[in-house]
Simulated scan of single mutants.
Amino acid sequence: MYKESICSQCMACVDACPKGIHYIDENGNHQVRRDISCDGCRKCEEVCPMSAIHITGEIKTVSELMKIVHEDDAFYETSGGGVTLSGGECTSQPDAALAILKACKEDGINTAIETCGHSRMDRLMEMADYIDLFLFDMKHMDPVRHNELTGISNEKILANLKELFKRGYNVKIRMPMLKQVNDSHEEIQQIVDFLTPYKDLPNFHGIDLLPYHKLGVAKYGQLGIDYPVKEDPSLSDADLTRIEGWIKEYDFPVRVVRH
């Protein structure tokens, strides 16, 4: 990730990179070759005097991660909180996720995962015995529209969700909300209709509405990727309150998670 705005153009990274990812263009400016795979040696990051370069992602063993987890033991004890495996999508690394979840439970630490739900059911259920709460995304009920928005249909997602409810695993629904994407009364009604058979189950823990935010826009720029959302799909407070009201009409526990 390259923050051009704070780069001093010292070119130390050009000399440090063994793969030639950093280079000087014809105008004498620092550029990053995105067509060359970085091997994560971090030499460019280490020599950058302005901290304009950051290599994302680290390889860690479970024992290394658990040392980090246990740094917050006092917080877990006083708050009742624990460890949440977040995203990307933790179920895309199922063996690692399962190992971390098992280690947390062995040490008496509460666990949760944030998931889009697009996972092999057998692998998801294998993890489920070590998960205290699923924070499960529902983006859109229409399979065709879901595919247009995310690149995948939602049949597998909804099948996994039904199975989690059926087997008694704790689930909280999270709905990322975007204007003119999934904010109409019809779209909300479809989600309510799907969830109604599970509403009174003790393992159903309500719905969180997650308003669209722009926290990732700067990261796209640092990665040299064009941000695909050109217009602002943010919902107003009035929009969110109205959607919250629609859901409350059916006696669902629901809240807006405002940033």
Rank of each mutant, 00 (worst) to 15 (best):
C44T: 10
I247H: 12
E4L: 05
Y250H: 15
L133C: 01
V256H: 10
M138H: 03
E163G: 00
D107N: 15
S37N: 14
E58M: 07
H30S: 13
M1Q: 10
L98Y: 12
E4Q: 15
E58K: 13
L164F: 13
F75T: 01
M125P: 09
S236N: 06
E71N: 12
S92K: 05
T91F: 05
H140V: 09
V32I: 14
C48W: 09
K139Y: 10
I247K: 10
R258F: 00
A238D: 15
K248Q: 13
F252T: 14
E126N: 12
Y169V: 07
K230P: 01
S234Q: 11
P94G: 06
I207M: 12
F134G: 02
I36L: 12
D200L: 03
V256R: 08
R167I: 05
V254Q: 09
I21G: 08
L135Y: 09
T91K: 01
A16S: 13
N170K: 15
K139S: 09
I36C: 08
Y250G: 01
F194M: 12
N147Q: 15
F136P: 00
G108K: 04
E58G: 00
K105S: 11
T115P: 00
D35E: 14
K43Q: 14
Y250P: 00
C7G: 04
P233K: 02
S51Y: 09
G87E: 07
A159L: 02
D137K: 04
K230G: 02
V217I: 08
R167Y: 03
C7Y: 13
I188W: 01
R33C: 09
N110R: 14
A103H: 03
S5K: 13
N27T: 11
V14T: 14
A52L: 01
N160H: 08
V256Q: 07
V32L: 15
S153F: 00
Y169S: 10
K214C: 04
G82D: 11
F204G: 02
T56W: 04
N147I: 01
W246T: 04
S184W: 02
I173R: 08
D142C: 05
M127H: 05
E114W: 05
I55G: 06
E64K: 04
L209H: 08
Q31N: 14
Y212A: 05
V217S: 00
C38N: 13
V192H: 05
E249V: 03
I6Q: 06
F134A: 02
M125W: 01
S86L: 08
H140Q: 15
V254P: 07
E186H: 10
I243H: 00
L85W: 03
E58Q: 10
N154D: 11
M121W: 00
E77P: 01
E77Q: 14
Y220T: 04
D122A: 11
N160I: 14
H140I: 12
I113P: 05
P18Y: 08
P176T: 01
M1D: 12
L164W: 12
L195S: 06
D251H: 15
A103T: 07
D35A: 10
H146Q: 07
P94T: 07
Y227G: 03
R123I: 06
A112N: 07
Y212S: 06
C17D: 06
F136D: 02
M141I: 04
L135K: 05
E71D: 07
I55C: 10
G245E: 11
Y2A: 05
Y76I: 09
C10V: 05
I6G: 02
K43Y: 04
S153I: 02
E186Y: 11
K3M: 04
H30R: 15
A12I: 00
